[in-house]
Write a protein that binds this DNA or RNA. Structure first.
Lengths: 205, 205
DNA sequence: TTTTAATGCGAGCTATTGCTCATATTTATA
DNA sequence: TATAAATATGAGCAATAGCTCGCATTAAAA
């Protein structure tokens, strides 16, 4: 029914092999979500694909949701890191180029494994954000928000709304393209770029 | 006794009460998806909320997926009908007004029950499209495709791509707004209108 | 080496889910 | 009214899920 108490850590890996186990579990979970969807996403299947036993799995994760939460969190943190890096390395260059690079990061993140991205999105909302996810998400949003704020662009709506919509429309286009089986990432980038720039009132150039 | 010994397609409602049962089941299924998500979405729960027994449920649906498929299909058909109606009643008026009306239809469809819309979307891809869904989806797409084709707009990309992206970005913005708890539909409409029109290279007016 | 802690294992318990079937009740038909 | 057809019921079955627990194995500490 209502989401249970938050997934709390069980054991922390101390030796190298256990860290590898944890990593294998998370990777297996991602692969199963990607290839089998929620149907095949069982703890037994995860353990099997990871090459470990269920018992080992439950030594590091208190329950199934904790695995999903760890997956979701690491996904967001990776995204946050990448976007911050891009932003940092483009501070001295025209904003248009930074936008291009950020779009490419976002598209890469979602486009190659569309089903995984979609299911992670779904699980995010089921699990809530009380496990560090909110902070990671905030980092991601802030990159774009700060970029827009520091720019001289005359935004079509208020700063937060504009930021949210830019993310949302890019996400929507990528999602549709991914599920549609498209493979041309450059073309996808161009379309999102067009959508974002025109939404912001900038010349598509 | 029974003429057929093999599993045959389920009954079609003949009497009025059975039609009501079918309707109650579909409505209950939608309500459960909306309020409980996939977790609470069990056949027993559906039957209970519909006020019928599981046995009755399985007289009209061969399995759980058939319920979901019926839900998905009726959802798409409703959308197709509404969009075709709007398109028909706006043939003599400026294309901008038609776009506005179509956006409103799409937003209404998704915004009031965002979780339901999201889960229906997910299930669509799990179930495939071999139950009449493809036709309904095609109807929806065709409304916008024909509108764009017959217009004098210089499209930013080819017709199909542009059509898909317009849907996708509107969908993305609505999805984010819905999950974000927004309630101002007019404001949402304005934002999507801005996104669509600028994507199409039309003045936001 | 011996001892202790960390890690790994997987059969199987408990709860739940999708679904059936024998039976009961309501409606249509003769 | 009598008979058949349609509809409704819900206890319970088979399958499967999440998860535990006693024990085996490996690595670190003494």
């Amino acid at each position: 029914m209502t989401p249970d108490t938050l997934p709390k850590p069980r054991k922390s890996p101390v030796q190298a092999r256990s860290a590898a186990t944890v990593e294998a579990i998370l990777e297996a979970a991602a692969r199963i979500l990607e290839s089998e969807g929620l149907d095949g996403y069982t703890t037994n299947a995860i353990a099997k694909r990871a090459g470990v036993s269920v018992g080992s799995l439950y030594q590091y994760f208190p329950n199934k949701d904790a695995i999903t939460a760890a997956l979701v969190l690491s996904d967001s943190e990776l995204m946050a890191t990448r976007m911050q890096e891009v932003r940092a390395s483009y501070t001295a260059r025209p904003i248009r180029e930074c936008i291009d690079a950020l779009i490419d990061v976002a598209v890469c993140h979602q486009f190659d494994r569309p089903m995984l991205a979609r299911l992670i999105d779904l699980e995010e909302h089921r699990l809530g954000q009380d496990f560090g996810l909110k902070a990671a998400k905030q980092k991601i949003v802030m990159v774009v928000r700060n970029l827009l704020e520091s720019s001289e662009i005359d935004l079509p709506f208020d700063l937060d709304t504009t930021t949210q919509d830019v993310f949302a429309l890019a996400h929507g286009i990528t999602d549709a393209a991914g599920l549609n089986g498209e493979t041309d990432r450059a073309h996808l980038n161009a379309r999102i770029r067009h959508a974002v720039l025109s939404y912001l009132g900038l010349p598509t150039s």
